[in-house]
Design a protein around this nucleic acid. Structure first.
Length: 556
RNA sequence: UGACCUAUGGUGUAAUGGUAACACACCAGUUUUUGGUUCUGGUUUUCUAGGUUCGAAUCCUGGUAGGUCAACCA
């Protein structure tokens, strides 16, 4: 085998491999990604998606996309659409697009069957009463006064529930298990509740809806899901998952749990993400600072980089906090190979090449990507007056400063070596303009000057440059671990998570940029054109900075 | 004062009773017309106490620490 030396399997892959080796699933393995359509997908979901689809792909199985739409109060078609497009964008194809609501009739029949078996009963108690009789983790619960209704009465009452004869909350259907069970989920869990609420798919067809525990396992089973993977908090649900399947004597899907993804410097809970949207701390679900798939996409992350990230974080059962620098590494790794290099000056200062003829323009050819010469070259106009980055010039440069300063030389990327002659200051002491002379025989690609300079800086030609807005994004929170933070987590939002540069200057080739297209602004970072761009007003998002060892050096 | 899950460098993940490794991060150096990239090297690890064994990160027992569970949410 070509990859006999391949990496060791994760614990889920081992389970699948063992099951296959034992011939447990001759029909092949089946997984499913089961989101509730009540919000947008985030990078934590991406982990689950990669796990579910990846598991099936690796072992020749298939994966369904199933919407867990059993709560009509919270679910909307809008979310269904965004979830589908996110999963597809991530690069996965589902075998079937399914909905738990497809199974409402069958699930209802399952419930009737359990009533017939004496394993379910209709309870007239209120939510408060049920909670009161439930006990606590350390004290057993008490049987409901309605627990011993006759089979016929239960059947009739459940049918009436379905027929809409009772208002919301008047009755529920419960499994008859054990009110003293040490696992709270086994203390006669609710199976059905009454909700006179239209459903985004079934409309007014139903007024009773199955609970998660009586829908998820049953849906898995009906679809022949062999390996139903979910996050750790469902671990305590597994005995119930198995109990229903057992008593119903249906296809035995099995549930396995893994630890959810936690990312440093961000929040992941739907509640907190929603809070930021509602409090307008961010501009929306796809504000590029959000950890949602749609935000990452807008920010310039590639699907490949996210898949790669999910691969690298691995999967296990212990709580984890992944450093966001790994995500940043993954996107840099990908973009380094595929992003064309261009020049953009964020904080411009004027540079005049004193010995370059006024009015002259030179079309320089500069490689698009030194990592991939196949990408060819582009034309970049050069002239007497340029913008360079303010931080690339220092009036009193320290020893290890390889850029421009009085008497210093640098190369202008793809152009000439220049020598700084003098500079002028504004009234406030800031640099107004820099005067330098160029060395004609040092032209990039045909340099006969014999001069070697330590630094190369980027630039744009003033008469040719395009003014643009640039949005610099950085880590959302100033704290690593947000898990301990309450609603006041917004206090810890990084004030520099968004900085807008209204007037940056980019090279003219960027007039042709398309929304979402990834590019590297040389020496600055990876960027993409935002959808807010309009003709005459380009808006760029910074996906991630380049690694900056100089900045690190300076902090020392 | 319950049930269940978990414990390996700074962060993750491997090692499936036989030399604790890989990635990120960090630190050096190399390369470089991006202080990017590349390449090389380095620092840093088995929660604890017993037990089984020729041999334990791995198996057993106790302890400790963290997490999950008491929605008519999923």
């Amino acid at each position: 085998m070509e990859d006999s030396k391949s990496k060791s399997l994760n614990f889920l892959e081992e389970i699948v491999q063992t099951d296959i080796a034992e011939g447990k699933y001759p029909q092949g393995i089946f997984t499913r990604f089961p989101p509730e359509p009540n919000g947008y997908l985030h990078i934590g979901h991406a982990k689950s998606i990669c796990l579910n689809f990846g598991l099936a792909q690796k072992f020749g199985g298939k994966t369904n996309l199933r919407f867990d739409d059993t709560n009509p109060m919270t679910e909307e078609t809008e979310y269904v659409e965004s979830i589908k497009s996110d999963v597809a964008w991530l690069g996965f194809q589902w075998e079937n697009e399914l909905y738990a609501s497809n199974y409402f009739e069958q699930i209802y029949q399952f419930a009737v069957e359990l009533i017939r078996k004496g394993l379910a009963y209709v309870d007239d108690s209120s939510a408060e009463e049920i909670a009161a009789l439930k006990g606590t983790p350390t004290t057993p619960g008490t049987n409901s006064p309605f627990r011993d209704r006759s089979l016929d009465e239960n059947l009739a009452l459940f049918a009436s529930m379905r027929n809409g004869e009772f208002p919301d909350g008047a009755k529920v259907l419960r499994a008859k298990i054990d009110m003293a069970h040490p696992n709270m989920h086994m203390r006669d869990p609710l199976m059905y509740r009454i909700r006179h609420v239209p459903h985004h798919r079934t409309g007014n067809q139903w007024c009773i809806y199955p609970m998660y525990d009586f829908a998820h396992g049953q849906s898995d089973s009906m679809e022949g899901i062999t390996h139903s993977i979910c996050t750790l908090e469902f671990d305590v649900h597994r005995p119930l998952y198995d109990w229903f399947i057992n008593k119903l004597e249906i296809f035995p899907s099995h549930q396995y749990e893994f630890a959810r993804l936690n990312l440093s410097h961000t929040v992941m809970s739907k509640r907190k993400l929603l809070q930021m949207v509602n409090e307008k701390v961010v501009s929306g679900w796809d504000d590029p600072r959000m950890p949602t798939i749609s935000a990452l996409r807008r920010r310039g992350f590639t699907a490949a980089s996210i898949r790669n990230f999910c691969e690298r974080i691995g999967v296990a059962k212990r709580d984890n906090l992944i450093d966001i620098s790994l995500l940043e590494f993954c996107i840099r790794e990908d973009l380094n190979k595929i992003a064309d290099r261009v020049m953009a000056v964020m904080d411009p200062v004027k540079l005049i090449i004193t010995n370059y003829p006024e009015g002259q323009t030179e079309d320089l050819l500069i490689e698009n990507n030194p990592e991939d010469l196949e990408t060819g070259k582009r034309v970049v106009p050069f002239s007497r007056e340029l913008y360079i980055e303010r931080e690339d010039f220092m009036v009193e440069p320290p020893k290890k400063f390889f850029r421009l300063g009085p008497g210093l030389q640098v190369r202008l990327k793809g152009a000439y070596i220049i020598s700084c002659e003098h500079f002028e200051l504004n009234a406030d002491g800031s640099v107004k303009e820099i005067h330098a002379s160029y060395i004609p025989e040092s032209k990039s690609g045909q340099d006969t000057s014999g001069i070697h300079v330590k630094g190369t800086i980027h630039w744009v030609s003033i008469p040719h440059a395009i003014q643009a807005e640039v949005r610099l994004f950085d880590r959302l929170l100033i704290v690593e671990d947000a898990s301990e933070l309450g609603d006041d987590f917004v206090k810890f939002i990084n004030p520099e998570s968004l900085q807008v540069i209204e007037s940056a200057f980019v090279e003219p080739s960027l007039a042709q940029a398309t929304v979402g297209e990834a590019m590297q602004f040389i020496r600055k970072g990876y960027y993409c054109l935002d959808r807010d761009s309009k003709p005459g007003h380009l808006v760029f998002n910074r996906t991630v900075t380049l690694k900056d060892t100089w900045a690190k050096e300076q902090k020392k």
